[in-house]
């Protein structure tokens, strides 16, 4: 029998035991963003014809919450285990590096999806989306959580202190998500920044996910899927390479 289910269960139980912090809090934060931005901008901004600003904003907020929480789940679990030393319990077991990866990744995806579903549920009162494109929605949600979950494993392994992890979060994840078109369409940017945005993989995740809701997007959703898929493969390969080498986990 593989130890994967146990490590996955442990990771799930870990965030579920502190659900107020790991699920409820991000949902409340997203709701606040929605209230403030839609209050200020609803009557002034229309990004796509026939789509209200609030309807434009909600998919972005759902996606942003998923990204941040998937990342946060694997990265904070790993750094806490490393700092407290209890990572040794998994290291002493016969778990392979692949099982280790899949367990942390799986839990990060679930946390991202649970938070995303929560954000969507509370914003339902403002924008009831009738028929999203379920295929696009599922593909983008899963890929986004998987990419950030894997990136969280890398950050959690690499960081030796909480402030290093915070730096990773504040100087990489946060700018990438905020500057990806959660709150605006990149078509509203000057040409230079439009081009820059197209090098940000998170832009494709948000854009494609929004396409599932409003049927309109800045980029071709198939291109987005390709970028997201390539990112996932690349980051997973990096993560597996680090885990296999025992980088910062085994001396």
């Amino acid at each position: 029998m593989s130890g994967l289910p146990a490590l996955f269960y442990k990771e799930m139980l870990r965030f579920w035991k502190v659900a107020v912090q790991t699920v409820v809090a991000p949902v409340v934060t997203a709701l606040l963003y929605l209230l403030i931005f839609s209050h200020v901008l609803e009557d002034h901004v229309q990004v796509y014809p026939g789509v209200t600003y609030t309807a434009f904003l909600v998919p972005g907020l759902v996606m942003m919450s998923m990204l941040q929480n998937a990342f946060s789940n694997s990265s904070s679990s790993l750094i806490q285990s490393k700092m407290q030393g209890n990572i040794v319990f998994a290291m002493l077991s016969p778990l392979s590096y692949l099982e280790f990866f899949l367990a942390y990744l799986g839990a990060a995806i679930i946390r991202g999806l649970v938070v995303g579903a929560g954000v969507w549920a509370v914003t339902w009162a403002f924008v009831p989306f009738v028929m999203p494109h379920w295929g696009w929605l599922a593909a983008y949600a899963l890929l986004a959580c998987a990419i950030l979950g894997a990136l969280g494993i890398v950050a959690g392994i690499w960081a030796e202190k909480y402030d290093q992890l915070a730096a990773f979060q504040n100087f990489l994840i946060l700018p990438l998500t905020f500057l990806s078109g959660v709150f605006y369409s990149i078509h509203s940017l000057p040409p230079f920044w439009q081009t820059v945005s197209r090098f940000n993989p998170v832009f494709y995740l948000i854009d494609g996910f929004r396409h599932a809701f409003v049927g309109q997007s800045d980029a071709d959703p198939w291109l987005g899927l390709l970028v997201a898929g390539a990112c996932f493969v690349a980051i997973s390969a990096l993560t597996l390479m680090l885990l296999r080498s025992g980088y910062k986990l085994r001396h």
């Binding site: 029998m1 130890g3 407290q84 040794v88």
Partner: peptide, 27 residues
């Protein structure tokens, strides 16, 4: 292996800790 450092996972109780540890070994 009983490690030298007094390490524990503060998210879980005693029984959960042991059930999870068994699970790592596929039990």
């Amino acid at each position: 292996v009983v490690p030298q450092e007094l390490v524990y996972d503060p998210f879980f109780n005693v029984r959960e800790t042991l059930v999870i540890q068994s699970g790592y070994f596929g039990l």
